[in-house]
């Protein structure tokens, strides 16, 4: 009886993980601009992989004693995913990728830079050098 319940939990974790990861990749493929695509992998795929790891943790724990190694990978994934998402968003802003036209808000980082000095403004004459 107990075995069946545990097996059910493992099976649920594996399938849920697979479904979440698939949905994340689907979002990566068919959303319109980079900033929207970032949402799928950074949240959904992380939870999908986390679910799979916890499923395998339960699977190996029921045979011989508790095993916590997979929990380390899960925690590591959950700590690092936001960091890499942040860095990717930063580099996308740096490259000034165009957001979808429906996006509201206009951050300074995306505006095109104006040249700071034109030739007319450059100091003329009165050179300090003799």
């Amino acid at each position: 009886m107990l075995n069946t319940v545990i097996e059910g939990v493992i099976a649920f974790m594996l399938v849920a993980g697979g479904a979440f990861a698939f949905i994340g990749s689907l979002g990566l493929t068919h959303l319109k601009d980079f900033y929207m695509r970032l949402h799928g992998p950074s949240k959904t795929t992380t939870l999908g992989v986390g679910c799979t790891l916890i499923g395998s943790l339960i699977y190996f724990s029921q045979e011989d004693g508790p095993i916590v190694q997979e929990l380390l990978i899960t925690i590591f994934a959950f700590i690092t995913a936001p960091v890499s998402a942040h860095m990717l968003a930063k580099s996308a802003l740096h490259h000034k990728l165009k957001p979808d036209p429906r996006t509201r808000g206009n951050p300074v980082e995306l505006e095109s830079e104006k040249p700071k000095h034109t030739i007319e403004e450059a100091p003329q004459g009165d050179s300090p050098l003799p």
Binding site: L28, V49, A77
Partner: peptide, 17 residues
């Protein structure tokens, strides 16, 4: 380029699973 990096990043997460 950020798109490709994001894709590869997701790919390694999936390969872990």
């Amino acid at each position: 380029l950020p798109d490709r990096i994001l894709a590869v990043d997701t790919m390694y997460m999936n390969s872990i699973a």
